[in-house]
Design a protein around this nucleic acid. Sequence first.
DNA 1: GTGAAAGCGCTAACAT
DNA 2: ATGTTAGCGCTTTCAC
Lengths: 344, 344
Amino acid sequence: MAVTIYDVAKRAGVGIGTVSRALNDRPNINTETKNRILSIAKELNYTPHSVAQSLASRKTHTIAAIVPFFFNYFFVGLLRNIQYGLSAQGYSLLLYSLDRVEDKQLLFEKALSERKCDAILVLSLQVGQEYAEKFRRTRIPVMLIDNHNPLLDSISIANERAAEAATRHLIKLGHKHIGLINGDYHSFPAQSRMQGFVKAMREENLPIDPAFVIHCDAQIGEDGFNEQAGYSSMQQLLAQDKHPTALFVASDVQALGAMRAAKENGLKIPHDIALIGFDDIDFAKYMGLSTMRQPVELMAELAVDRLVKRLQNKTKGLFQVELNAELIVRETCGCKRGFQAQFE
Amino acid sequence: MAVTIYDVAKRAGVGIGTVSRALNDRPNINTETKNRILSIAKELNYTPHSVAQSLASRKTHTIAAIVPFFFNYFFVGLLRNIQYGLSAQGYSLLLYSLDRVEDKQLLFEKALSERKCDAILVLSLQVGQEYAEKFRRTRIPVMLIDNHNPLLDSISIANERAAEAATRHLIKLGHKHIGLINGDYHSFPAQSRMQGFVKAMREENLPIDPAFVIHCDAQIGEDGFNEQAGYSSMQQLLAQDKHPTALFVASDVQALGAMRAAKENGLKIPHDIALIGFDDIDFAKYMGLSTMRQPVELMAELAVDRLVKRLQNKTKGLFQVELNAELIVRETCGCKRGFQAQFE
DNA sequence: GTGAAAGCGCTAACAT
DNA sequence: ATGTTAGCGCTTTCAC
């Protein structure tokens, strides 16, 4: 049996209350006794039993992240930074992932009912009205990342502005026939990115050819933001008798898929088709993919920071931030002179 | 305040013991009372408080995974499958990740002392003698994946055999000058992969040019299995006045880096240098990278299954499995006729 | 078959 | 400043 505060108390000749006070750095304790207790605890190799602490204090010091694992590596970068921030603040990360979007309700329910966590981090998932209200009612702090809900804290990207910037960049390079490969249009980011695209085209008086705008139909359980979807969309685009000279693609993994399809069709990027992706996943750099970078570190940092503050009641009111994506110019947009396509 | 078994008991006019029996499907209870309790519980929207359950039963139904996040996407695939298996078995996944290998002891210690988990899953990390013994002593089930220790359960890949197979494939294609880009030689997989490479070359009476064998020096906190390391290794290789005609690379991300370097040097793959990687991460498929596939799904399934069985005391004795990697022939090894290099 | 009672290891309120 | 006590919400004896 492991050593408990009772053992420490007995050895120190004090009550368990005093031990608890010493261990938790609480006031109303003599410095001497405190030090004595601390050294005895160390000597006995005492470590607190966090489950017992949780039950008594009603705090688990654990935060659950609900993540659609899909096939978008954007989440990996986010998660890494979230984990990093959480552990720095003394919190553990409980990971709930789903393979099919339909399962999200189940996980919301689970996180809520099991009470293994103090707060919930929801990545890139749409939270319906029902659960938004439920979260509010249970008073559990919830933070949405890469999504938005009027009732909940959120950190998202100014998707519309970013899409607009990407599109404008292509326009500035002289393209007149610009297409869009989007994710599943039911998703929040997909809609905003579409709007940004449309806005840029409209304001520059460029016609939008409906045949050049493709929304990846979400397969069962997916969201269209994956390599395969990008590949098929590009194939679909190229199967037509005319194709755009430039494309804004709503995610890097899709863009990678699109590049693969382009290559198979003998098209050179950016010569035949220029490309801008979205996210700036690790591989974008390696592939020379121009893209709109999401500030993953910052998003994670803000999310963790805010959630922890909220748990400490150090903040009130809705926290809704919109960050800007940044255009990262690499090869696929074609504005670097003398560049030879990564893909043949 | 949430509803507890006391509420259910009162409403049903029974003791809490009976409620517990009903809820947990235990014997010695009248079917009628049981059903009555169950329906009352449902009506009251009762959900068990897992923290209280844990404290009383000394079971958390949570498993911790200690993961070096590095930059190797191999872990992502593993984690996804692990999470999937665990949740199917009613377990939660606590994620401990480290950014620097040096931190692993800290996390071992943390997982052990906090007692938030029933078992520990260690991914791709070397467990020293000290902790192996400590794990045994505390009797906490531990499963190593992608590594090995005589005292602990493990699931690993027959690295030597796999490396040998990859090398032999290159030899069979007629290559005489074959090089190796390895991970940090201090790591277990790197050593075995080196041995397999050497074995194949020896047995086929091919000389090994020391200049063609590169071990990625692990940067602080890393393990050499990353894109950047692969890139530099290739640069280093190509800076010499002669270079191999084929390469076995110890991981796909490194191979991707190597391909990037090759392209920058104007070398065509597989024409000038043939390549075989290791892991079969998602991107390998997209890049046409030939590779030794690790059976990630199977590894995860076995690991979870075994760990859960162990927690239920349904198994004893050491469980040490070695699985075989499978050669996935794509374009970079050059054995598909008429293939034109993905990279220029 | 069921109820009462004793923990699980801690925190926190309340005495002293 | 310190000890005592009552929970936290459950599981698990142990009587009946």
